[in-house]
């Protein structure tokens, strides 16, 4: 095995959890998320020469996942699963009980993808507003607006406000 392959293997092991979670919340389907991760790593391997900076690998791979997801679902689709019906086993330690976690997952699944995607990039990807802006091809100000609305909508949904007409706070 050459050095590049060895490095790539380490990259796969290091980034698979974050990429899977990102893909899961984009597609909201576990099987599709696994396929997205596999296909994205395969595409990344084929075009590894395009990766100039190892530090940028995560952003590069997340962009591949987003594009791959968009390619599969280029026409707007309704949610694949009703997130409220999907109970995912969770082994992560948490101060919240499973019903609370499920309630939040339900809310995350209900906000519009244009708000959810920047939130995922911030919380799953760990990117700054400027980095998210670069990835999404929008302004940093627009990212901030979307992040603001994402959290405002989550809070409104958890308060039980009208799911179809969450009050805009901006």
């Amino acid at each position: 095995m050459n050095a590049k392959r060895s490095e790539f293997d380490q990259l796969v092991r290091r980034l698979t959890p974050d990429l899977f979670r990102f893909a899961y919340w984009l597609s909201r389907n576990e099987a599709l998320a696994q396929d997205l991760v596999q296909e994205s790593f395969l595409r990344a391997w084929r075009s590894l020469a395009d990766l100039r900076d190892e530090k940028a690998a995560k952003a590069w791979l997340m962009t591949i996942v987003r594009r791959e997801h968009a390619r599969l679902f280029e026409r707007k689709l309704p949610p694949i699963d009703d997130i409220a019906d999907v109970v995912i086993e969770d082994h992560s330690p948490s101060a919240f009980d499973m019903s609370e976690i499920q309630e939040m997952r339900d809310a995350i699944g209900r906000i519009d993808s244009k708000y959810r995607e920047p939130l995922l990039l911030q919380l799953v990807g760990g990117f700054s507003c400027n980095e998210i802006a670069d990835q999404l091809g929008i302004s940093a100000a627009a990212v901030m607006t979307q992040l603001f609305r994402a959290r405002a909508k989550l809070k409104a949904l958890l308060r039980g406000e009208n799911r179809g007409n969450v009050h805009e706070l901006l």
């Binding site: 899977f20 696994q34 919380l123």
Partner: peptide
């Protein structure tokens, strides 16, 4: 912290192994 706990869905076991096997 609440949002992050909800986002942290369990990753399927051996997913990384399967990715590597498919390369």
């Amino acid at each position: 912290h609440y949002v992050e706990a909800a986002l942290a869905v369990a990753v399927p076991s051996n997913l990384a192994d399967r990715v590597l096997a498919a390369l």
